[in-house]
Amino acid sequence: MTLFAAALAAAVGRSLPGAVLTVGAVAAGQLSVGWCNDRRDLGRDLATGRRDKPLVRGAVRPAVVTAAALTALLLCVPLSLATGPLAGCAHLGAVAAAWAYNLRLKGTAFSWLPYALAFGLLPAFVTLGLPGAPWPPWWLTAAAALLGAGAHFANVLPDIDDDLATGVVGLPHRLGARRSAVFGGLLVLGAAVALVAGPPGEVPPYGWGLLAVTAAVPVLAGSRLTGRSRVPFLATMALAGADVVLLLVRGAALAAPR
């Protein structure tokens, strides 16, 4: 997310000081969200035997992670507001959505919503810091929100069994692995459609090619040949990354008068 914000800030022509503030705010917000998530999930990670996190291995104390998450959150507030009041509120809304996911919504049928809100608000955070505080075009917001929701479904797939064993029942868990893989692929496809069809001007060949390849993801995800493999997850995340590249390329249209 931090690299994405930096690239998008460059694509829309943010000044160097503005880009630095934008990246700093997003980095602080992401650190707070990540540390909050690890601290919140400590009990579940211990129950499922995960050993890939410092908290689980005992390499760091829970109190230290709690303090780090709160410190990063406090730093995020002035850094966000320094980019402008509207831009700052947009980013703080995104961070609040991510914290709401960690603390409550992760195990509900609305688990997708914080991802859609947080990703969808990121372009607004970047563009509202430009002179005149312009809102991003609808297609950019829609693509980012769809991409975020799709990333949520894909991100859950590798750990879906462990989540269910520890009582996490978000929307992907309710749908099941195969249907979640298909739905995540459809969301990423929707993001590609918005990026190809939304901006003015001629669609680059890369855009048409990405759209054609992305259309195959829901089919692949629903195939019985994939079973419990990581193929749907890897395919969805790879195309989500390609969507990000297209979003940045098409996002340069933000600098043009509308």
Score class of each variant (00 low, 15 high):
146 L>T: 06
144 A>D: 03
138 W>E: 14
134 P>N: 12
124 A>T: 11
146 L>K: 05
148 G>C: 09
131 P>D: 04
128 L>D: 12
147 L>G: 14
130 L>T: 12
158 P>T: 09
122 L>V: 00
149 A>L: 08
140 L>D: 07
152 H>A: 08
153 F>E: 07
122 L>I: 03
147 L>T: 01
130 L>N: 05
125 F>V: 01
149 A>T: 03
154 A>S: 11
132 G>V: 13
145 A>H: 08
147 L>M: 13
135 W>D: 06
148 G>L: 05
143 A>M: 05
130 L>C: 10
124 A>M: 04
148 G>W: 02
130 L>E: 13
147 L>K: 02
150 G>Q: 02
145 A>W: 11
125 F>Q: 14
145 A>R: 04
135 W>K: 06
144 A>Q: 10
127 T>H: 02
143 A>G: 05
144 A>N: 06
136 P>D: 02
140 L>H: 03
146 L>V: 08
155 N>C: 08
129 G>R: 12
148 G>P: 08
158 P>I: 15
154 A>P: 03
136 P>I: 00
144 A>M: 10
135 W>G: 13
145 A>P: 14
155 N>H: 03
126 V>E: 10
128 L>A: 11
148 G>A: 09
131 P>N: 09
156 V>A: 14
127 T>Q: 08
157 L>V: 03
154 A>D: 06
126 V>F: 11
